[in-house]
């Protein structure tokens, strides 16, 4: 078993994608940054110097302290504090946790929805295809943020009481629904090509169920492009989440994401406490940039035409 594992590792180390990764410095840097973010987000309760959500730890006398290297700074709050005395570094770590969770969950949701609809549209064709793709066209004519706002507003109107507790899922749903079109289009295109390949027709002759054909013959061919879109989409989803939270319709302030932090800090920007908004902003930019760079690299690595 162990030998098999070693062999599998060896094989993946030698694969084209791994080779391209080893020879792409910016992909390595982006991956390290991304892993750092994910790691510190996942382990935030252990890594963060304070727990910003534990009210008993908060002390209003610590409020609005500047970063430690400025006069008046406190070494126990390296990036300063906000108006309630919360440590900015800790809120960033906890905020990144929520931002990443929303981003990844909503991308998974869009991906499943988009891939399924794209497969159906491409494989079944006819009026079902026309219907799905027209819905996609119509949706594409609205900005994603508008659709997310619409879904979010609907959820608030329908579930006025439990909104606080469901905010995370509503956010995932609203961002997820606004992003499926890209997956559906890509998958549909590939499906149209694959459907007419002779091995798919042969599989039809063997009496294999269409769903099984889609899963076994068509799906593996669409996974590459879908993976690329998904990586870049995580960055977009995080931005969308930050925008929604900035507009005040995202996660509640008791569980602030990076977007919420930026919005809160925005109020202090003109009174001189720039660190409250700047550091969450930098964190967001660096995280999104790292994900985008990874996505770019993946797109090149998986594109057989760019292989040399």
């Amino acid at each position: 078993m162990n030998a098999r594992l070693v062999a599998a590792l060896r094989l993946s180390w030698d694969s084209d994608v791994a080779y391209s990764f080893r020879h792409s410095p910016y992909a390595i840097v982006a991956a390290i940054v991304f892993v750092l973010f994910v790691g510190s987000a996942v382990f935030a309760p252990w890594v963060a110097p304070h727990n910003p959500f534990d009210l008993s730890q908060l002390d209003l006398s610590n409020s609005l302290k500047p970063p430690m290297w400025l006069p008046g700074g406190d070494p126990s709050f390296p990036l300063g504090t906000d108006d309630q005395g919360r440590d900015i570094l800790s809120t960033i770590l906890f905020g990144a946790r929520i931002s990443l969770a929303v981003g990844i969950a909503s991308v998974l949701f869009s991906m499943v929805l988009g891939v399924a609809l794209g497969l159906i549209a491409g494989y079944v064709g006819g009026s079902i295809d026309a219907f799905i793709m027209r819905v996609a066209d119509v949706q594409l004519s609205f900005p994603a943020i508008l659709i997310a706002l619409l879904v979010d507003g609907l959820a608030r109107a329908l579930l006025p009481r439990s909104h606080e507790s469901l905010a995370f899922y509503v956010l995932v749903l609203s961002i997820g629904v606004s992003g499926w079109v890209q997956y559906a289009r890509t998958v549909r295109g590939t499906t149209l090509v694959e459907k007419n390949k002779e091995y798919v027709q042969a599989a039809r002759l063997f009496g294999i169920h269409p769903l099984a054909i889609m899963a076994r013959h068509v799906l593996p061919n669409v996974l590459g492009p879908v993976l690329v879109i998904a990586t870049i989409h995580i960055a977009t989803a995080i931005i969308t989440e930050a925008t929604l939270s900035f507009l005040g319709v995202g996660v509640p302030p008791t569980q602030p994401s990076l977007g919420t932090l930026i919005r809160i800090g925005n109020d202090f920007l003109f009174s001189g406490e720039w660190w409250v908004t700047l550091f969450p902003g930098i964190a967001l930019v660096v995280m999104v940039l790292a994900i985008n760079l990874l996505g770019d690299w993946l797109r090149d690595a998986l594109n057989p035409r760019l292989r040399t």
């Binding site: 002779e198 027709q201 042969a202 002759l205 063997f206 009496g207």
Partner: peptide, 8 residues
């Protein structure tokens, strides 16, 4: 159906 097959 499976008795009829095709060589492409």
């Amino acid at each position: 159906r499976r008795k009829l097959q095709m060589i492409f």
